[in-house]
Amino acid sequence: MSTDRITMIRERLDAALSPTQIDIIDESAKHAGHAGAKGGGGHFIVTLISGNFSGKSLIERHRMVYDALGDAMQSEIHALSINAKAPEEI
């Protein structure tokens, strides 16, 4: 199941943001048993480098990621930590 979620996250972010780098870490096992995890949603850390983030504020970048993930934020993902950078920031 976790591999399926990572694949889904990667595909949605690739399609929407064309990142030059994407790293996804599943930390769901660390949160097993807590209230939010009971609904089945996973805990993930996402690091993205994308030209689409150039000139965008942190809030705008996070909104772009949330928009790309769409309905998965309501079911498949319980918690998401986002590190979003433009190529010129690395």
Rank of each mutant, 00 (worst) to 15 (best):
S57I: 02
S2M: 06
K85H: 04
I59G: 04
G33M: 08
Q74M: 09
A29Y: 06
S2D: 07
I9M: 04
G40Q: 08
M73F: 08
G36E: 11
G39R: 15
P19F: 03
V65E: 01
D14Y: 04
E76Q: 14
I82C: 06
K38I: 08
A84Q: 06
M73A: 10
G33P: 12
I82Q: 05
R63G: 11
L48T: 00
A35H: 13
M73R: 10
P87T: 12
D67K: 15
H62R: 01
L17R: 01
S50M: 08
S75D: 14
M1L: 08
G42S: 06
A84C: 03
I45T: 08
E60Q: 15
I22Q: 04
I25K: 05
T7Q: 12
G41T: 09
M64K: 13
S81D: 05
L58A: 14
E89W: 05
D67T: 15
T3H: 09
L48V: 07
H62A: 13
L69S: 07
L48A: 04
T47K: 09
T3C: 01
E76F: 02
S18D: 11
I59D: 10
A68W: 07
R5Q: 09
S75I: 10
F53T: 06
E76K: 13
H31S: 07
G51I: 08
Q21P: 00
I82P: 03
D4I: 08
G36S: 12
I90G: 09
T3Q: 12
S54Q: 09
D67M: 12
H43F: 15
I25F: 00
S81C: 03
Q21L: 13
S75W: 05
A37K: 13
D67W: 11
E60V: 04
S50Y: 03
I59P: 00
R61M: 10
A32G: 02
D23P: 00
T20A: 12
L17W: 10
R5S: 08
T3Y: 01
R61Y: 12
S57D: 13
I59V: 15
N83M: 02
Q74F: 04
G36H: 12
V46E: 03
P87A: 02
T7P: 01
I82M: 08
A15Q: 11
A72W: 05
R63D: 00
H78N: 09
E11L: 00
S75H: 15
K56R: 15
I90Y: 13
S81E: 02
S57R: 05
I82K: 01
M73Q: 02
T20K: 09
R5Y: 07
A35K: 14
S57G: 13
T20N: 07
E27H: 06
V65N: 01
A72L: 15
A37H: 15
K38E: 15
A15C: 02
D26H: 04
I90N: 09
Q74C: 11
H31I: 03
S2Q: 10
R63Y: 07
R10S: 10
L17M: 08
D26Y: 06
M1F: 11
S54L: 11
G41W: 02
G70F: 10
P19K: 04
M8K: 12
L58C: 03
A15F: 03
R10L: 01
M1I: 03
A29Q: 06
G36A: 14
G70E: 09
L69K: 00
L69F: 12
S54A: 15
